[in-house]
């Protein structure tokens, strides 16, 4: 092997030395867990509609129920195990959003309820709301211009 002198050479060398994530296995797990979570959502949705609720209300109930389940599983220290196994499968559904709010809330409880739980709750998920809500305002304004 030739001696490594530059940062670029080292970076290439490290990339080649570092093991890659088992992407096929990860994708497979993400697929079926993510699909399953969506399916649970669909069944709740169908049930709400069956009980005579409209589309919007059913959809909101699906979100609330999945978020509540995620909060419980996070509190029971189960969600991180699911997340480790499923990766994006539990991160990308609304469950991942819930987990990213609940987990810092629990973790920073030691710094008190106001600055700990309240202040740190959005350390991971805050950006989701910032970018999601800002995007919706922009979309709204653009829609207004084209009306």
């Amino acid at each position: 092997m030739k001696p490594i002198e530059t940062k670029q050479e080292y970076s290439n060398y490290v990339d080649q030395k570092s093991p890659n994530s088992p992407i096929l296995k990860n994708c497979f797990n993400a697929f079926w867990v993510g699909g399953l979570i969506c399916t649970i959502g669909q069944i709740i949705m169908d049930f709400c509609k069956f009980k005579g609720l409209d589309e919007t209300a059913s959809s909101t109930i699906v979100s609330i129920v999945l978020i509540a389940i995620s909060a419980i599983l996070t509190g029971l220290n189960v969600f991180n195990k699911i997340g480790k196994f499923a990766g994006a499968g539990s991160l990308i559904p609304i469950t991942g959003f819930a987990n990213s709010i609940v987990s810092p809330a629990i973790e920073y409880k030691s710094e008190g309820y106001v600055m700990g739980v309240g202040g740190k709750m959005f350390t991971v998920a805050g950006p989701v709301l910032v970018f999601g809500i800002s995007a919706s305002v922009i979309v709204g304004i653009i829609a207004l211009l084209f009306m």
């Binding site: 890659n20 997340g83 480790k84 991160l91 991942g96 987990s103 991971v124």
Partner: peptide, 11 residues
């Protein structure tokens, strides 16, 4: 990250 966050650790 918080310990309860369901993230994956790379190899």
């Amino acid at each position: 990250f918080p310990l309860e966050l369901g993230n994956q650790r790379p190899p």
